[in-house]
Design a protein around this nucleic acid. Structure first.
Lengths: 212, 212
DNA sequence: TAGATTGTTAATCGATTAACAATC
DNA sequence: TAGATTGTTAATCGATTAACAATC
């Protein structure tokens, strides 16, 4: 298993391949060449073949790729068949939005609890999950051993919450607060910095205005 | 103004510089060298100097950078001083979460309306904005000329909504639905594909498990 | 002036694209 | 077999890092 490490840029493209292949399946298309796929996705066929070959030879010369087989392979590569258990910290609008996001369930993630420390929401039900008191998080996590904690708490709270999560044994964090968390090297962190994305858009608008 | 185009990778790093410089200002630190900043941010000093020099010589030999001046410059480069007007389409949990996201207001974006087509929410107030009927969007947009439409609608609705937005004159879309929009070349689109981010995290977890 | 640190050029590294032999 | 299309190597392109002369 000591394959040379797959570059992060390639990994970040896998979900997109997964999505397009899923759409092909929905349309009952069971065979695709790298050229056809490249036209749909707006990337080069070369890149598709290079990317896929980081993980093995999924295609067949003269034929192309079997969509179903490739889709299933990428599902496995991404770990979407593992049924990773998630918890959400923060039952505000963002936490609620994420809890109800159909896409996660569909991709094999299992939401098993939502935590908050606001008495007004504790005990309510979100996306079929009772909201639990944050004070009970440690017990819950040590017992249920969820895989991923989704941090939907305010910026000011997130550093402490992240430290708690690590202490309680969580190994992967999906962080929505606008902070770069500083955690032990064996804890995985994926940040969603929404402001960064909006500012990038803003830059591009601004640039258009400038270069007339 | 025909500078050679700044690479997108550099642009995507600007918000992060902006954030760290803002934090320095909060801590009343008014001078910083590329080396100091590089240690804080976990990037190379070389990269910082290269990136900044895409936009001009902000530093001074033997001294470093004036934090306030650099922060203000990046604010302008990102267009955060323009007060871009935004509207949100979709008053569900995600729309609400985005409307209440303090970060946007703080970065100069002005939310001027929220639209939905659900009678139960039309007329209610979110983040100080009345929710308007989607049917009234065209009139509103033609009159108020917002700059950015934030698409917080379900996947199935987003293609039509995006086409509408373009027809009504919007030139920049911030899209949260898990779809790649196909729009005229002069319309800017920034996607936030949350699933992609979560799947990347999932891949990395899975990878750790495999390579033991 | 001496020390510090930039701006910038050159060297390295990595990612993308092109080309084509292998092979279904 | 002939045609198609992959897997893979080689060429190109771009981004990052290193080095250092310029200069505050």
């Amino acid at each position: 298993m000591a394959d040379k490490q797959v570059p992060l840029v390639v990994i970040r493209r896998l979900p997109r391949y997964h999505r397009y292949l899923g759409e092909l399946l929905n349309n009952k298309i069971y065979r695709v060449s790298s050229t056809e796929l490249s036209e749909k996705m707006g990337v080069t066929a070369s890149q598709i073949r290079q990317d896929l070959n980081c993980f093995g030879g999924f295609g067949q010369q003269g034929y192309g790729y079997n969509v179903e087989m490739l889709y299933d392979s990428i599902t496995k590569i991404l770990g979407l068949d593992k049924g990773y258990k998630t918890i959400i910290i923060g039952a505000g609008n963002l936490g609620k939005a994420l809890a109800n996001y159909a896409g996660f369930e569909k991709r094999g993630f299992k939401l098993c609890a939502v935590f908050d420390n606001n008495k007004d929401v504790i005990g309510k039900t979100i996306a079929g999950c009772k909201v639990l008191a944050y004070a009970d998080a440690q017990g819950f996590i040590e017992k249920e051993k969820p895989d991923i904690a989704i941090l939907a708490v305010p910026k000011l709270a997130v550093t402490k919450v992240a430290d708690d999560m690590v202490k309680f044994g969580i190994k992967a964090l999906w962080n929505f607060a606008y902070v770069d968390l500083d955690l032990p090297g064996d804890v995985l962190v994926e940040n969603v910095h929404l402001s960064d994305s909006l500012m990038t858009l803003s830059y591009r608008m601004n640039e258009l205005g400038d270069n007339k």
